[in-house]
Structures are given as C-alpha cells and as structure tokens.
C-alpha cells in the first residue's frame, strides 16, 4: 500500500475505509457479526464459535454477512460473546454463546429476523 503523504490523504483514506471496516455506515446493507476475541473470549471458546458461525452462514448460503474479531467487551463473565450489527438497528449482544446458540443466532436472528431472546445479554443503540 502506498504511504499516506498528507493529512488530506489520511482523511480520504478514512472515507474510503468506512465501507470496508467492521463499522457500518447508516446505509450499509451488510450485517456484521463481531466475536469478542481477546484472551478472555478465546479462552472461553470464541474461535470455535466464530468457525461455527462461518460454516452456518455458508451452509445457509447467506450473503452480505461478515464475521470479524474484536477486542474485549468487558463482560468477561459472559464470554464467548457475539454482537450482531445491522445498520439502522440497535446492536444485539449475545452472551454465553455455545455451538447450539451460535446456530440459533444464524437460523433465528439472521434468517428469520428475530433475536434469540434467551441469550440476549444486552441491546444497545450506540456505544457512547
């Protein structure tokens, strides 16, 4: 990648990056599944959960969904955690995610469109 040679280039790079990051612009039609992959999450099995999510999404042929690894949500007691980010909707945070919960998230939340209530830890409009 060429080096950024001015503040303006940094600003331009920021605009260009927005559509490619895990953060959604308001008009995005993508869904981002963020998995907490700090040491706490990984120790609780986050990598396995991310793999289950990936294969479930492929099995069901879902498109426009990206899985990203993020840092610690702070709620280490509830790891592994999965966050569903959809533009224009409050993020939904799932805690204590097991393989079967991960499958339910894909089948019920992503396909059928209703959150897996029993595992929702927290719903938030925006992280302050």
């Amino acid at each position: 990648m060429p080096k950024l040679a001015s503040w303006d280039e940094l600003k331009q790079h920021r605009e260009d990056s927005k559509s490619r990051t895990s953060l959604l612009s308001p008009d995005s039609n993508r869904i981002v599944l963020a998995v907490g992959e700090a040491t706490c999450g990984i120790a609780a099995g986050a990598k396995e959960i991310a793999a289950v999510l990936q294969s479930e999404i492929e099995n069901k042929g879902l498109e426009n969904i990206s899985i990203i690894a993020t840092g610690c949500y702070g709620m280490c007691y509830a790891e592994p955690m999965v966050e569903v980010r959809e533009a224009g909707k409050p993020s939904v945070y799932y805690g204590y995610v097991t393989e079967s919960v991960a499958k339910s998230i894909v089948a019920r939340h992503l396909v059928a469109g209703s959150p897996v209530e029993e595992n929702v830890l927290h719903v938030e409009v925006q992280i302050p």
Partner: peptide
C-alpha cells in the same frame, strides 16, 4: 475495545 477489529 469490542468495537473495532484490532488487527485492521
């Protein structure tokens, strides 16, 4: 933390 992908 818990917002961005730290490797990006």
């Amino acid at each position: 933390c818990g917002v961005i992908d730290p490797e990006s």
